[in-house]
Structures are given as structure tokens and as C-alpha cells.
């Protein structure tokens, strides 16, 4: 029993890890087929795991409704919205567009989901401004560089900024705003990003190695 509970998962994990690690170096068609095949399995497994997620979601909102917690009416709306969307989705066979144009499911998608997510996304525009106002204060050299780089890029990436710059220095001036922003992005920004990327890549490799060798077991919800 202990074998099944503790060691079998490690064996499975190590085996699949090694197989798919090696798979990369084998150009044979069989190896590519294996990768795509197992990738499709992942879709199936994910499908089943969604049942777990839905159970949790239903549980949370059901509890709210049952206990008549404040805002339980909104939980009811969640349920109704899910059920209505799924029913319409089934009627439309999951297609958003067909020969006749938008399906009912497509209507829900275009007129509800898109504006909702688009608006939530665009709220960022307001937040970015308030964050800049609050956080960009030249308290230290670090903070100064941060805000200075941000201002230069914000100034240089819009036509008005470029226009002003070329008005001040003349269109013949060898250092145009576009060149400056490109240089900051392509040299200073790129160097830092590359440093982060290299570190992150090493971390990813290290963690993956530990998983394959069964050293890292946090994912099993298990301590050492």
C-alpha cells in the first residue's frame, strides 16, 4: 500500500519525465507522434479535472445561498448565468459562428463576454495612471531611474512626443526620439530581461530535474 501511495507516483513521474526529456533529442517521427499523442491526453485529463473545479465553485455559492449570507442573490445569478449559457451553448453546438452568422452562443460571447472582459482589461488604463502618479517618486536612485525610463519611453513612443522632439532639435538631428526609445528597449531593457530569463531558465531546469528525480514532492501535497 505504501508502495502505491508513495513510490508509484514517483516512478510514474520519473519515467514520463525521462521519456519526454529524451524525446526532444530524437527527431524520428515516432517520437514526435508520441509527444502530440500524450499532449492530447493532457486535454482529456484537464477535462476531468474541471469537474473538481466546478464542484468547488458550486459548493462556495451553494453555501452562500443556503446560509442566506449577504449577497446570496448574486450567487444565484452565477448559477443562472452558468445554466443559461451552457444550455444555449448546447443548442448552438458550441459554435459561435455558422453559415448564417452569429449563433445565440456567439451572441452571448460577443455581447456579454467580450465587453465584460474588454472593460475589465481596459480598467488597466486607469490603474496604470494612478499607479504611476503614486509610485513614481524619485525617492532613491533606483526609483529615479525607473520613472525616468518610463517617462522617456512614454514620451518617445507617441507621435506627439516624436513631433515635439524633432521640432526642438530639427528633423535633421541625428538622434531622433524613435532611435532613443528603440535603444533603451533593445539594449538596456533587453540586457536586464536576458539576465532574468537566464536565471529563470536555470530555475525551471533545476525544479524540473528535482521533479523527475522525485526530490521535489510538493505537488503531491507531501512534506519531505
Amino acid at each position: 500500500m505504501l508502495f502505491l501511495k508513495r513510490y508509484l507516483p514517483l516512478v510514474i513521474c520519473g519515467f514520463t519525465g525521462v521519456v519526454f526529456g529524451i524525446q526532444y533529442y530524437v527527431p524520428h517521427k515516432a517520437s514526435e507522434d508520441l509527444l502530440t499523442f500524450i499532449n492530447d491526453w493532457m486535454i482529456i485529463i484537464f477535462g476531468f479535472s474541471m469537474i473538481l473545479a466546478l464542484a468547488s465553485l458550486f459548493h462556495v455559492h451553494y453555501q452562500k445561498i443556503r446560509r442566506r449570507q449577504s449577497g446570496w442573490g448574486f450567487s444565484l445569478i452565477v448559477f443562472i448565468a452558468i445554466i443559461v449559457t451552457v444550455i444555449i451553448g448546447i443548442i448552438s453546438q458550441g459554435e459561435t459562428v455558422d453559415e448564417k452568422g452569429l449563433t445565440s452562443f456567439g451572441w452571448i460571447y460577443t455581447n456579454m463576454l467580450v465587453p465584460l472582459s474588454g472593460t475589465m482589461f481596459s480598467i488597466l488604463a486607469f490603474f496604470i495612471a494612478s499607479a504611476a502618479f503614486r509610485a513614481f517618486r524619485a525617492r532613491t536612485l533606483d526609483a529615479f531611474l525607473l520613472l525616468f525610463a518610463a517617462i522617456i519611453i512614454m514620451f518617445g513612443r507617441v507621435p506627439a512626443g516624436e513631433y515635439l522632439w524633432s521640432k526642438i532639435w530639427g528633423a535633421e538631428f541625428p538622434l531622433q526620439m524613435g532611435d532613443i526609445t528603440e535603444w533603451i528597449m533593445g539594449v538596456l531593457n533587453m540586457a536586464a530581461r536576458r539576465g532574468i530569463l537566464l536565471g529563470v531558465a536555470l530555475g525551471a531546469i533545476a525544479t524540473s530535474l528535482k521533479i523527475i528525480f522525485g526530490i521535489e514532492r510538493a505537488y503531491l501535497g507531501e512534506k519531505e
Partner: peptide, 21 residues
């Protein structure tokens, strides 16, 4: 917000059924 959660979950379920499973 709650409509959004409901519709998005419903949408994912439908997509999962018809486009994946």
C-alpha cells in the same frame, strides 16, 4: 461581476465539451 463569472464558466464548460472533449 457575478454575471461575468457565470457566463465565463458556462462558456468554458461549453467549449470544453464541444471543442475539446
Amino acid at each position: 461581476e457575478h454575471l461575468y463569472i457565470g457566463v465565463s464558466v458556462g462558456y468554458s464548460i461549453t467549449l470544453l465539451i464541444f471543442k475539446f472533449m
